[in-house]
Design a protein around this nucleic acid. Structure first.
Length: 679
DNA sequence: TTAGGGTTAG
């Protein structure tokens, strides 16, 4: 077989690979080909690497009777591209063709796997071996310096580059732009860009990304429009950053715009747009994209698959998510995490736990997903257990982990654990993070330690809407109504943050508890006009409560009849309680009749009704309702309480003695009771 | 063989 026909076969295989991406066809073709063909074999290895069948690629390589330098390069760079560094290095040590391509492929592969120090060591070895680096080598080496955040190292490499004469090379200059952006030298990056004689789409995209990273999406959009040349990566930068930055709608419309312009989206664009659709819970459009991805043969891409798993799960369809997950041959940790998160989000904790146990290389996101799942299903005990297991396994908790566990401490009203977590946050140096600050303010407020809550809040360098909400709400709910209002006024005067519906609810709550009725009514009436927030049922109920507490019963009643929706049961309860306090028996009876009617029509109505009677001290009515519920066979979910002793949560249910020490506890209670009688 | 881009947790 001559070289030209070998080339012919290789080209044909490549065309088939690009068109059909069907491994089977290509394998068939290689088999039909009489005898061994080196070029075809190399192509097949390359194709398998691209499809993620790395083990198959390695098998093909190992079985080759003869290999050339392309075979070695394809295999080693393929292994590195798929994160199989140890295997790649094993082959690298044994490679009989140490040319510049292979050195460069290895250096860049190591950098891509986050092993920049190792990459630099290989680079030094390369220089010592006498092989001269080329421009591509330098771009990878500069990237490694950037990843290491080592500006001194970058300067030494620049010296070498100038010595060899690559300083004006386009790729090398581009890599220096990103190097400086990584180190925060924005001005220097911009100066390099401005000084460049020739710029390509990569240079422009780097500058575009700079504005996106700074959070200036408008300026980024301007650069994007003005760029002399745009390719699919420039588009993908825009789409992904809009998606990640909390603008999923814009990301989707940008994707449509791209398609309308006649451009072909790459895998990045697809994974980003699917992620945006997942945020929007847009299942149908996501399914359309999935169909399209299947049609064009991108359905094996791990990024696309992980986003699709996430999409199906976020839309509540864990079954289809799992089906897709199972079809992925070589899963990475992100793919695993997407599925665990999917089960967690949908409350399927047994499935989440089972899958979590099977993850081969867990990272902290895997742990966080499971912890969050337990917290969302209010299984706080298990959440803390998993947290402890995480620490024991040697996995470092991150800010997300603490955000979750602090939420659990708040829900459990467990100050002791909260303080322990706070200490850990400080030890790891996370205390200045805005998420941490907010979670701590909330935890301390919910556990009743308003002093610490205030201290953390005052110490926060930047305060966002969520932080202010936690503080204002915390103060209001802990009975510091006046202070809560003072903080609200301070927020209005000193920040640009606009009040949200939760803050206004707290403000109404505070006004109600301070007896500042007119002030409360003023804020309620300002909601729509000044703040552009439509009041919800809860806001209306709060006003009813406020008027009732102040004895303005007829006003409260009138307010209720003018509400744009059916009043909540809590609103009736507030009014009834007001009637009781101010002795309005006639209206109280009217409300009682109304509530009985409501109980008939609403599911769980009896329970609510009995709660309403209980809250206004009408115990006879409570007993009657309970009797009626028993007759009709209506079950009430039991009351539940808990106490924390030596890091263990003890749960107690009403009319239930399932606690292991319930007999002893009863005895002690009886003893205490008798003591109280004596006193 | 490269520089610019992607998926998951709070």
């Amino acid at each position: 077989m001559g070289l030209s026909s070998q080339k012919y076969i290789a080209v044909k295989l490549l065309i088939m690979y690009l068109n059909s991406r069907k491994s089977h066809d290509i394998e068939q073709m290689v088999k039909e080909f009489n005898g061994f063909n080196l070029v075809a074999h190399n192509c097949l290895i390359n194709a398998n690497v691209d499809w993620g069948n790395v083990s198959e690629a390695r098998r093909l390589f190992d079985e080759m009777p003869e290999r050339n330098e392309v075979s070695w390069t394809v295999l080693i760079s393929g292994l590195l591209r798929n994160g199989r560094v140890a295997e790649a290095m094993w082959y690298f040590e044994r490679n009989p063709f140490p040319n510049v391509f292979l050195w460069t492929a290895t250096i860049s592969g190591l950098v891509q796997n986050g092993l920049s120090s190792e990459a630099m060591r290989v680079f030094v070895k390369m220089l010592a071996s006498g092989v001269a680096p080329n421009d591509v080598t330098f771009t990878s080496v500069v990237r490694a310096c950037g990843e290491l955040g080592d500006s001194g190292l970058g300067k030494s490499v620049l010296g070498l580059i100038v010595k060899v004469g690559f300083e004006d090379n386009l790729s090398v200059s581009n890599s220096f732009i990103s190097f400086n952006l990584k180190l925060g030298n924005i001005d220097l990056a911009r100066r390099i860009f401005d000084r460049m004689e020739e710029r390509d789409v990569v240079s422009w995209t780097a500058i575009l990304d700079m504005y996106v990273d700074m959070g200036d999406l408008r300026e980024a959009r301007r650069i994007f429009v003005e760029m002399p040349e745009r390719n699919e990566i420039s588009w993908s930068v825009m789409i992904s950053r809009y998606s990640q930055g909390g603008y999923p709608k814009e990301a989707v419309s940008l994707f449509h715009e791209m398609v309308q312009c006649g451009l072909i989206p790459n895998t990045s664009c697809y994974s980003s747009v699917i992620s945006a659709l997942a945020s929007l819970r847009a299942l149908q459009e996501g399914k359309n994209i999935h169909g399209h991805v299947l049609k064009i043969g991108m359905d094996r891409d791990i990024f696309i698959c992980s986003s699709l798993v996430d999409l199906y799960c976020k839309c509540g369809n864990t079954k289809d998510g799992r089906l897709l997950f199972d079809s992925v041959l070589e899963k990475n940790v992100v793919c695993w995490n997407s599925m665990v998160t999917g089960y967690s989000l949908n409350g399927q904790l047994a499935e989440a736990k089972e899958l979590f146990n099977q993850i081969p290389n867990k990272n902290n996101i895997s742990w966080n997903s499971l912890i969050t799942g337990y917290i969302e299903t209010e299984n706080f005990d298990r959440a803390f257990e998993v947290f402890n297991e995480m620490i024991l396994s040697g996995e470092q908790p991150n800010k997300s982990t603490f955000s979750s566990v602090l939420k659990a401490c708040a829900s459990l009203v467990s100050l002791e654990r909260g303080e322990y977590m706070h200490a850990k946050v400080v030890k790891l140096g996370f205390q200045n993070d805005i998420f941490m600050g907010t979670a701590l303010v909330d935890m301390y407020a919910k556990t009743g330690n308003i002093e610490s809550s205030r201290m953390v809040f005052n110490g926060m360098l930047i305060k966002n809407e969520i932080a202010w909400t936690a503080m204002i709400q915390g103060l209001a709910e802990n009975g510091f109504a006046e202070e809560s209002l003072a903080f609200f006024e301070e927020m209005e005067q000193t920040s640009t943050i606009k009040p949200n519906d939760l803050i206004l609810l707290s403000v109404l709550f505070a006004c109600s508890h301070c007896g500042l009725v007119d002030k409360g009514l003023f804020y309620f009436n300002s909601m729509e006009k000044v703040y552009g927030i439509t009041p919800s049922e809860r806001h209306y109920t709060s006003v009813v409560d406020m008027l009732s507490r102040a004895g303005r019963i007829s006003e409260a009643e009138k307010f209720m009849t003018n509400m744009p929706f059916e009043p909540e049961v809590n609103a009736w309860a507030a009014l009834l309680s007001g009637c009781k306090t101010y002795g309005n028996k006639k209206l109280a009876e009217k409300i009682a009749t109304k509530l009985s009617e409501l109980a008939e029509t609403k599911s769980g109505g009896y329970v609510l009704l009995s709660n309403v009677y209980a809250s206004s001290g009408r115990w006879l009515d409570v007993l009657n309702i309970r009797k009626m519920m028993n007759e009709k066979g209506v079950k009430k979910s039991g009351g539940c309480s808990w106490i924390e002793v030596r890091n263990r949560i003890h749960l107690f249910f009403s009319q239930d003695d399932s606690h292991a020490q319930s007999a002893e506890l009863s005895e002690v209670l009886e003893l205490l009771n008798s003591e109280m009688v004596i006193l």
